[in-house]
Design a protein around this nucleic acid. Sequence first.
DNA 1: CTAGGGTTAG
Length: 697
Amino acid sequence: MGTRSNLRQSIDALCSLGSSATESVYTRLVLECVRANDAEQAARLQAHMESHSFRPNDTYIHNRLLHLYAKSGKVGTARNLFDRMPKRDVFSWNAMLSLFAKSRAQEDLWATFNDMPVRDSVSYNTVIAGFTDNRLPRKGLEVFAMMVVDGFQPTDHTYVSALHSCSMLLGLRQGKQIHGRIVLTGSLGTNAFVWNALINMYAKCGEINHAWWLFDKVPDKNVVSWNSMISAYLEVGLPEKCIEMFHEMQLASLKPDQVTISNVLNAYFETRRVDEARNLFSEVKGMKDKVCWTTMIAGYSQNGREEDALMIFRQMLLANAQPDSFTISAVISACAKLASLHQGRALHSKAILIGVDDNLLVSSALIDMYCKCGTISDARFVFNSMPSHNVVSWNAMIRGYAQNGRDQEALSLYESMIQANKKPDSVTFLAVLSACMHANLIEEGKKYFNSISKDHGITPTLDHYSCMIHLLGRSGRLDKALDLIKQMPHEPDSLIWSSFLSVCSKKGDIEHGEIAAKRLLEMDPFNAGPYIMLSNMYAAHSRWDDVASVRSLMNSRNVKKFAAYSWVEFDNKVHKFVSEDQAHPESEKIYGELQQLTRRLQEVGFVPNTRSVLHDVGEDEKFSSVCYHSEKLALAYSLLKLPGGVPIRILKNIRICVDCHLFMRYISKVIGRHIILRDATRYHHFIGGECSCKDYW
DNA sequence: CTAGGGTTAG
């Protein structure tokens, strides 16, 4: 800081002098600017020299200025000086290469390299590194080959960048060739950079044992060596080994750095040791960079702790850490999971404020968030505002339409994607097939399903088969659906059998349903879902003995039902309800409102549907348990609290029951409000007595 | 003057 202000004062003094200084004064000041890394003052100094027609012949001074501008990303200033230099040597050209490499101007980098009258090995190294950093590893390796052909001996710098290119390309063969050359030329000495690049290359190419073998041989292991190995284990899915290495590293008296921490945090999150991750995070007080913060946010969010993710983000802002596009997209995706429109909108503003709203990561997260909150028009606005789309943003939008019951829009957007010559992937087809499934478009569904492998060369996944089972089952062809399961190239998993069970239950086909339930219970005897489905099917046919035997099986195995709950968000707060909830402070008012609503609906012909009640109890008891399901309580509370005209958003962790669905349809008509209910599988938009899912969910 | 490790959406 002191150097900087001294520098400014010296240059101020020089400027007020009104005459030129001697060459040695200029040289000294330029070097001071370089030392202080102060391109602003350097530019002032250059201007002063030129305004006094002082043109030092010394290319050295110009080169130092050029490099300083290059390092500070002052493209225009550097280019201007370069163009007017009376003499240029290889250092001047290299400075320009470095400038273009750093400012991601690949075309200029390549053109400059080709224009050079003479090159040295640094020129090649700079270009190879430039291409590698700009994610053009093939070009990097091309220049590496060119360097050898042109008769230059590769240096350690060359090997490091070239190996980095191989890691990006997963080019094990090329990597091994370079390794061979390094050994032959005796370059594998004590330079940790080369060792680490090799470890990294083998690790990225999946050769973890080879990476470990090298790591073991590194003479002076530094933090980066350890980090390379730790991230290698993370990469190949051995988080336990990462944590082990982390402890060993500390035993070897090496201090972990920010990279170590963020890798190890990831390893903790992958092994679901969320609290250990939090403890580690709070221990490393002084050395949290934005990657550490982001890892923590993403880790919480991926482990179902979205509220904590948002809390960490607030702490990050309070700690004055600067969020970037990775951070913002992680926080937005936490909001998406919570379907928290209020906070999601605030984050959208934040993204605009820090200038990352048109980043691909952030925009896709925003589209997803708006879709999950049910505000599809906002999602479409973001989609339309994007300068370019990739497969993830297309998928987010297509899927968002499909999830919100806008099946035709989903399919027509898919057609536009194909028109735009974009390659769909398996996620795209999942969205397309689920649109067909909800719109009951059997022929189209079959057509899209067949095109997955035929036209796009993708093997259909279990998710795709699951959609087809729903489609076939819905048209009553349960035998066809079962045939399809038998023909699959994959072993049917629980998703397949539960899809099949769910269509059987809708069609009341107990025979097929029993097959599915049997398979599911073999796979996971503690999952309550199949027991309940089967039991409901028996109950619908009044087979009470079978209902009782399923229930006693459940009890003997001590299978617990998944707790169902619903929540609503307003005033920046989440209000959560369980079935027959009495815990809310305004419980009495809520029940009063709900009873009044139920009476109004019954007047216009609504009959509570108690079919979905598990066991054979008296009608009164069934009636009350259905009447106070969590989503109904959440609805009553929202009606008490929200002004008219505002859409009501309810979220639920499991699928909505038949009675609640019908209830919501009636309500939307009787009171004329738009109700959006997101359950575990999809979005229900209730408007004027109809639901966007067309009663199929 | 040129080089290494970490966050990557649906």
